[in-house]
Each structure stands twice: as C-alpha cells, then as structure tokens.
Nucleic acid binder design. Structure first.
Length: 608
RNA sequence: GCCAGAUUAGCUCAGCGGUAGAGCACUGCUUUCGUAAAGCAGGGGUCAUCGGUUCAAAUCCGAUAUCUGGCUCCA
C-alpha cells in the first residue's frame, strides 16, 4: 500500500508503522474510515448536483454511513443513482484527500453560509486543532481520519433517504439524510446486500400475510394487533412453556383489571412520570378512571390487601398483563412497536437479604427460556443515573451489589451500562441476538425501592418489626407482541416443532387413502398435536406445495403401502427426501420434539 | 409528532386524463394423479376516504385515514 498521501492530523505516531508494514489496505484504513471518507465523497457529489445545499453531520455508522443535508427540494431514489454516478466521477477526477489545519477565524470564513457547520464549529473546544479534509473543490470541517485517495479499490451503494432532525432535536429543522454503505471488496458489499434482502424476506409483517399470522385494522385504530389463529397457536405454545417454567420456579398467577381509578396511578407516580404515555381518563360514575400502562400498581394492591410476614417471602407473582401506552404514530411498527401489548410481568417481594438470590433465580429463568429459542444474549448492568433519582447512596450500592452477586452466582458476565438505571433503582438489561445477528432488548430485571415507599408497603420481620420489602420488577419476554414478532423474523417463519402453528400435515396420495389419513389425524390430535388433515379433493403434489409453503414441520403422506403397513412417509420441512416409518415411531419422534422443546426437526429421540 | 414516499381484486403488481387488467388465491365441473402448482369455466374492485379541477379523474390538486423508510421515544 502507499500511505504517502495519507494525511492525518499531527500527532499520529503510528504513521511510519503504517508505511512500513505493507499491510493490505483494509488494515491501514479501518472500514469505518473508508465509510467516513465515502460519506465525504457523497457530500461533495450532492454539493455538485444541488448547489446551495447546506451540510449537517456525516459519520460512519454500524453498517455504513450517512450524511445529512438541508435541501430545498426533496430527494428521490432517482437522485441516489445520479449521486452515485457523480461520486464515481469525482473520485476519478479528484482522488486526493488532503488535510489542512486552519485557525478558527479561517474556519469561520470557509464555512460562510453553512449554518449547521458553523454551529458544529462552535461545539469544538477552543484549544482543539481545527482541520479541513479536502478533495477537488470540496472541503469539510472534520477531525478525520480519512483514506488517502478516493480512487482506491472499494465499493459502495447509496441505500435510502430519510428525514432526520438537526442534532437529533425535534425542535430543530428536519434535514434529509442519505444512508449508504461501503466495503473494500465487491464480495463483502454483495454479502451485505444479501443480508439486507434476507431481512426483507424475513420481515414479520411480510410473513404475516404469507402465513396468515396477524393483522391490524384502520377500523380499530393503528398500533393494535389482531392475532390470527396461526399466531395464536404460537403464542399459546410460548405462554405454556413460560407458565411451566414459572410454576416450577415458584411463581403464582395473578390477574388484575385493565382499568383502575386514576388516583391509583397518582399514588404510584405514573401520572406524574408516565402521564404522557397514558390514555386520557374516562368518567365512570363521575370519577376518573385510566387504562393501565403497567401492571405493578395492581400487584401492589394484592400485596397490601392484608398484613404480610417475612415467612411468606419471597413472594413471586406473575401475570401476562396487557397494558396500553400512547406511542406516537410515527414509531408504530408491526408487532414490534404497538399501543397495546401483553407483558410477561412478575413482581417479587422480598427482604434485602433475599434480593441477590431472587435476582439470580430470574437470571436462570432468562437463560432457560432464551435457550428454548436458541437466542444468545448479552447482559448489561445499568447503574445509578447522574441525576433525577431517589433513594440514598447506601441502598443503591446494596442493590447494585445484589445484582452483581446474583450475576456471579449464575456465572453471568455483565457489561457495564454506567448511569443507565431507572430513577428508582439499578437493573440488569438483556439484549438477545437473532439468527441474522441483530440485537433486541427484551428481558429486564429491576430493583425498585420507589413503589414500596410510595404505597407504604411493609411486612413483619422475625423480630416483630414492621419493615419495608424490596420489589423486583422483571419481564423475560418483554412483551408477547415484540417477542413473538422477533421470533417470526428469527426463525423466518420456520418455527420449531413445539411452537409451530401447524405441526403436522397429513396428506393422502389418492382419495381412497383419506380414511386412513383421518384416522392418523385423529390420533395425532388426541395426543395434543396441531395438525391439518388435507383430505379435500385435489392433487397430492399441490397439497405438498401448500404444506411446504405454510412451513409445516412434518408432512405425513400415506398411500397403499403405508395404509397396509400402518406406516407413514415422513417429509421434514426443508428437505425433499422421504423417510418411511411406522406411525408409532413418528408419534414417538413428535412427542420427543414437543416435550423437549427441541429446536431442530432431525433430532432423534434416544433409543429405548 | 416530524420529513419523504406509498395506498388499484384476498395476495403480488401493471395501467398514470377517454367508462378497470394479469398471475396466484377463491368457487363449480372434469381429473384419482407416489412427493413443490392437472384442465376448463366462473365469481370478485365506488381504483383508501372525502372534497376540488375538467366535457371526462384510478390517473391532476387538496384534506383525512392507514402503511413504509428514518428522526425522536420505547416492551
């Protein structure tokens, strides 16, 4: 590589190393540097094509880069192709990307008319060096670093246009943002574009129409999900697994109303801290009532219903509680961001001594339930925010330590999220990684000293004293809507056997085999499986296609041979091969996959 | 909420000033076919809604609803 033209602000002492190492370009210029430079290149092309444009920021981001522009005319997709073309031309004509250090005065002069850039300039501390990166007749106030030449071998594509507030502030002007991506090799770019295509194909809203999963309706209002029978089956299976696990872990079911007197939410502090997200009051017998945005106040009322003793601790109450929150129209998104959703909520009431064990128990539950779906996860310890918190340092320290101890007990590694805690207490947040490597925030475990205080909760301790319990607020799936939405995308509609909408399709080869198929189907249903018996008139091949399209894990196909031998020809989802086995053996396999919540379809039961 | 774009049959989409089209799906009849679409016929749309321009609007303009990509916010 030739790093001779590589300009970097003074003080970079790794320059000579770079020059001597003769490493491939990628090593000398990280991908983020390339992308940042391509963002510059894009901005210069926009400047050429749209005189009078004013520039915002243009950084590299996780999968590419963007640049914000203030333009009179709205950009279109056609413009993107034009801009790409212009970028290639500029890269060829003015390949050298050079850096100049300037004084603040010079910088101001060069940025005349560029209001956003001038504002950005004022954000740079007085004692810092100011540099411009320049190629051709275009230059940008920028601290770098950048690649040395724009005519190097790299590959880019502009992807989409979106609105973005200047400096992310909704009170400031809305700029036009162009997103793009860049890679050193064409293969990597192609791979990335394929990944984006895969994301499009797995989109839960797309699969929802394909597989008849859910809908929303203008008649009902946006942000409200209607679960169709197919997805209802998935949800039931997930809820069943969830309850099995929670019952075993000592949780007791509770159910609380969707509507309560407004004063309840006044005591809880929701009105004050959460009021913007709550629906307007409705008058019942002239008193204001509210739809609940959270389940905790309800559980607290149950707790307060009578005196509590330390002997009944820890109390673990679980509810799949449906809550309603006002979300701004623009943020709604399929099942992943909605206005009414069901949280897999639970509250644990315990003593300070029990706290870390209780949290450890929740960590184990998270681990087990995420294992059901093959999710990997990362956990973050979110500590006390810098301001606007309640409670004294000592109790915060204790609670944070309890979270740490708990994680240690179960061997959970915690990343630090400094100051990311709730105003009432620290928490552990989980991010799960789906099959496409995307991260989703679902599980959360929060220590809460606020609500016990506000509701004046107490219990009688062994020494006869009235003491304040600690509350742990936790959700593992987060919300059924978001979690199942993520599941659809994670599996791409190919649900594991145990939670698939239809688990088995039974298909006769000819109409005369229908009776045998009906018999098999009855046995499967009696054993609790979700099946479809495809004995309606029609060709076998078409039924196979339909079952394949519906992503049904198993097809059982039966003709003369099978009928005679009491067997079935089994076709697993994703393969075209058939395997003939006795119906009895298939039942064993199905029970094995179902009971064990096995992820793969080719996992054979142990020989008995 | 904001910026931009979209909305035509159940689905995917064509038509872009001169009285609505295709494929799949659906219904009926024929076909009984051993592992991804049998044949023929038929039904189905106030072209999102409301208003305007025009001799004439799915097509042009405006408002509303919903959706999409983002921003901000979040389970």
């Amino acid at each position: 590589m030739g790093a001779s033209g590589f300009i970097h602000p003074a003080g970079d002492d790794c320059m000579s190393e770079l020059q001597e190492a003769r490493e491939p370009v990628e090593a000398a210029f990280p991908l983020s540097t390339l992308r940042h430079s391509v963002a510059h290149l894009m901005a210069s092309a926009v400047a050429k094509l749209f005189p009078g444009v004013r520039f915002g920021f243009g950084p590299s981001i996780e999968h590419g880069f963007y640049y914000d522009f203030d333009l009179e005319e709205p950009l279109t997709d056609k413009d993107l192709r034009k801009i790409e073309k212009e970028m290639r031309r500029i890269a060829k004509r003015s390949p050298e990307l050079v850096c100049h250090e300037v004084t603040r005065e010079e910088a101001r002069k060069r940025l005349a008319g560029q209001d956003y850039k001038l504002e950005a300039l004022e954000l740079i501390p007085q004692d810092e060096k100011l540099t411009f990166y320049e190629h051709g007749d275009w230059a940008d106030l920028c601290e770098g670093p950048h690649i040395d030449r724009l005519d190097r071998d790299y590959h880019f594509k502009l992807l989409n246009i979106a609105g973005a507030y200047w400096r992310g502030d909704e009170k400031r002007p809305m700029l036009q943002r162009i997103y793009g991506t860049a890679f050193w090799s064409q293969e990597e770019l192609d791979e990335h574009l394929e990944w984006l295509e895969e994301i499009r194909l797995r989109d839960h809203r797309r699969l929802a129409t394909d597989l008849d999963l859910f809908s929303s309706h203008p008649e009902a209002g946006s942000g409200f999900v209607f679960w169709h029978p197919n997805l209802g089956a998935v949800r039931r299976a997930v809820e069943q697994a969830w309850w099995d696990l929670h019952t075993r872990a000592g949780y007791k079911p509770v159910y609380t109303p969707h509507v309560s007197r407004e004063s309840l939410f006044s005591v809880s502090g929701h009105l004050e801290n959460y009021g913007d997200l709550m629906y307007a009051p409705m008058a019942i017998d002239e008193l204001p009532y509210r739809v609940k945005p959270m389940n905790c106040p309800g559980h607290i009322l149950i707790y307060k219903n009578r005196g509590r003793s330390y002997r009944e601790f820890p109390i673990r109450w679980a509810e799949l509680g449906t809550v309603y929150r006002y979300e701004r129209s623009g943020v709604l998104h399929g099942m992943l961001r909605v206005r009414g959703f069901t949280q897999d909520d639970a509250h644990i009431f315990c003593t300070p001594e029990q706290l870390s064990d209780e949290i450890a128990g929740v960590c184990s539950l998270v681990d087990e339930i995420m294992g059901y779906f093959g999710f990997e996860y990362t956990a973050y310890l979110a500590t006390r925010p810098a301001d606007k918190t309640i409670g004294d340092d000592e109790i915060w320290e204790k609670a944070t330590q309890a979270l740490r101890d708990a994680a240690k007990k179960v061997g959970l590694k915690l990343e630090l999220d400094e100051g990311g805690g709730a105003f009432y207490g620290p928490k552990i947040d989980y991010k799960i990684k789906d099959a496409l490597g995307r991260e989703w925030q679902n599980s959360t475990i929060q220590c809460d000293f606020n609500l016990p205080e506000r509701f004046d909760l107490s219990y009688t301790d062994s020494d006869g004293m009235q003491k304040r319990p600690i509350m742990v607020h936790r959700a593992i799936l987060g919300s059924l809507e978001r979690f199942v939405g993520v599941l659809i995308e994670h599996f791409g509609g190919k649900f594991p056997f145990w939670c698939a909408p239809t688990q088995v399709a039974v298909i006769p080869i000819r109409e005369q085999h229908a009776d045998y198929c009906v018999k098999l189907n009855e046995e499967l249903q009696a054993a609790g499986f979700r099946t479809e018996c495809m004995v309606q008139p029609g060709h076998m091949n078409k039924k196979i296609k339909e079952a394949q399209h519906a992503q049904i894990p198993f097809m059982l196909i039966a003709g003369d041979r099978e009928q005679e031998e009491g067997s079935v020809a089994v076709r697993r989802r994703g393969t075209r091969e058939q395997e003939e086995m006795s119906f009895e053996d298939f039942m064993k396999l199905a029970k094995h996959l179902d009971d064990g919540r096995v992820l793969e379809l080719d996992h054979a039961p142990a020989k008995s």
